[in-house]
């Protein structure tokens, strides 16, 4: 089976993060493979190990993308597609990202597309579901268990309160994968060495026949980025750990009683 895994390299701002215009100052960002996507890559690898096939990873973004794709290749993915956003000021939203991914992967005719439920930076949780709709694939969002045999999928959808729903559907299909579905492997040294010689294709949005400027306008326009309003918030306990523990002990004793 062919499995396509779209993945994102997500930003986390460090303590010095400053707002510049409507975005964060790039120098304060640390980039890592999105937490959810480590689980979708692992799920794809396990399925291809059990049933044979190919795992293709695809990502869209700036320079940061390459390391994320290499990480997935080092984990065991077979091939990577890197789509470069040429204008650094363009931050594509979930729907525009899905439009680009749809163009990039439609010719792959994948049996299964596995996305992460969401990304830790943008938290839209929209790309997978939009991508499925654009490719006219059946989908299940927030999956924490997959059984596959002969084109049949039995999956569990994780609902609020930990209730699980069992669902069956046929491939080709798209699932969005929830954390905890498996234990993502770490790339070992051999994997890391092998990664650099695996096939990698580089594309641009223009080469996919799409208009990057139009996509950058997207489904919403960012008017501002700001710090959240300071709520009343917590009373900060001062002093060293002993002082803090003494105050906490006092609060506990007064509130819980004995």
């Amino acid at each position: 089976m062919k499995i396509v895994v779209p993945l994102k390299v997500a930003a986390s701002p460090d303590e010095s993060a400053k707002i510049e215009g409507n975005a964060l100052d790039e120098s304060s960002l640390e980039w890592n493979l999105n937490e959810w996507d480590t689980f979708s890559v692992e799920a794809a690898l396990q399925l291809s190990e059990a049933h044979g096939g190919e795992v293709v990873v695809v990502s869209l973004g700036g320079d940061e993308v390459e390391d994320g794709l290499l990480t997935a290749l080092a984990m065991g993915a077979d091939r990577a597609i890197q789509i470069n956003v040429e204008d650094e000021t363009h931050k594509l939203d979930a729907i525009s990202t899905a439009r680009v991914l749809a163009k990039a992967v439609e010719s792959e005719s994948a049996d299964l597309i596995l996305c992460g439920v969401m990304s830790s930076d943008g938290v839209s949780a929209g790309v997978g579901t939009a991508l499925a709709a654009l490719l006219d694939l059946p989908r299940v969002a927030v999956v924490n268990h997959i059984d596959y045999s002969d084109g049949q999928l039995s999956v569990r959808r994780e609902l609020e309160g930990g209730l699980l729903e069992e669902i069956s559907l046929v491939t080709p299909a798209l699932l969005t994968i929830q954390t905890g579905i498996n234990e993502p492997r770490y790339a070992n040294l051999r994997g890391i060495r092998a990664a650099s010689s695996k096939p990698r294709e580089e594309l641009t949005i223009e080469r996919l026949g799409l208009d990057e400027d139009a996509l950058a306008d997207g489904s919403a326009t960012v008017q501002a980025l700001a710090l959240p309003p300071v709520s009343e918030g917590a009373e900060i306990l001062e002093g060293d750990a002993q002082d803090v523990a003494a105050r906490i002990a006092q609060i506990i004793k007064s509130k819980v009683g004995s």
């Binding site: 899905a98 839209s124 579901t129």
Partner: peptide
């Protein structure tokens, strides 16, 4: 809602209808 159910169709409607979209 930004709920598990709506995560299964909200963005799909927005993509197909070329609507505006924001979640959470």
């Amino acid at each position: 809602g930004h709920t598990i159910d709506s995560l299964g169709f909200g963005a799909a409607v927005a993509a197909v209808k070329d609507a505006g979209f924001a979640s959470d």
